[in-house]
Design a protein around this nucleic acid. Structure first.
Lengths: 184, 184
DNA sequence: GTCTATAAAAAGATAGAC
DNA sequence: GTCTATCTTTTTATAGAC
């Protein structure tokens, strides 16, 4: 589907928005259709079931993560700094998709859990390329995971403490890498 | 309720188990009652609504977190090491409650989000007592949050990479603290 | 306190008109 | 492609017997 219908895009975007901003319980077919400005029937023409909606989230996350991994490998600041910096960015398309994936995984959608795992494996591999030390790479993964866990819920702890203030964490990256070298 | 009914405890425990192991979608009243070995009516005698069940999770998490904060402050290894070590422990009562809280928060239960925030504020304050440096304290918080985010889903990325292997991360704690000193 | 039976509401999905 | 109307299933909650 090289040029998906506008309505299909609006529906998927509405579903992702509801997942991110109100949680999985609120992301019903009816609420999604209403937010997208279509009827339930109109929604179901594009996505035959709720599972199809979740699958579309997973598929889109895969497309965006492939771009992200490429950018991460080529980043001038280095993969680790790129990774931590972008982990804290909120409301990028990738961030929204990853938050939506989280919501689905926590609700019990197994395909979403599997995709999260797959993404984590690839990120860890990319970090290991640069860092070398397994423990430090894990540490960076956990920091990133922590940033995601706090994101997607505006006005929360995460926002109060980190928003616009990530530079301090980023300054630690070279030190973390050195720490990795000492540790080998 | 100094000595809550045995059935009440079984129901609450079943609800927490379903949240942790199968996600919020699976934690219906019917499934909870079945796992607890009571009828739906029996369940609703102890918890008048689904909201009451969620509130009980939040209340129990508060009781356990007060104990945890006290233990953390008095830990011989220091608050930060205690905090990271216990963050990775799975299937403790506190861990299960925190995973359940996460599930509820991601589903859209606002009271659960508020409780998570409250807990995070108190943990950060306890870490600052020891570490002093705000950035490093944040880093430790994020690592811990990452550990929680990965926990509660057996057989996943987290389990494969960290289970029984946290000693490496713990060895980094003194170095992290030193890093904080340099950073001041 | 616990059960069964039943109601009420919400959510997912289908059919067919346009 | 999109809508309305309808059906089915699931989920929450109530009522009342025991």
């Amino acid at each position: 589907m090289a040029r998906p219908a506008a309505a299909r895009v609006k529906v998927l975007d509405a579903y992702i928005s509801l997942l991110c901003e109100e949680g999985e319980r609120a992301a019903t077919l009816e609420a999604t259709a209403a937010l997208a400005g279509v009827s339930k029937g109109g929604l179901l023409y594009h996505f035959a079931s709720k599972e199809a909606l979740a699958d579309a989230v997973i598929k889109l996350s895969e497309e965006l993560i492939l771009i992200d991994l490429k950018d991460m490998a080529q980043a001038e600041e280095g993969p680790a700094a790129y990774f931590i910096r972008t982990s804290a960015e909120v409301n990028t398309e990738l961030d929204r998709l990853l938050v939506a994936l989280h919501r689905l995984a926590h609700s019990g959608v197994e395909a979403a859990t599997a995709q999260m795992e797959s993404i984590n494996e690839r990120w860890l591999a990319a970090l290991m390329e640069e860092i070398g030390d397994k423990d430090i790479a894990h540490l960076v993964m956990l920091v990133s995971e922590g940033l995601y866990a706090f994101s997607g819920t505006p006005g929360t702890w995460y926002a109060r403490h980190f928003e616009g203030n990530l530079s301090h964490l980023l300054e630690l990256v070279p030190q973390l890498k050195k720490l990795g070298t000492n540790n080998q």
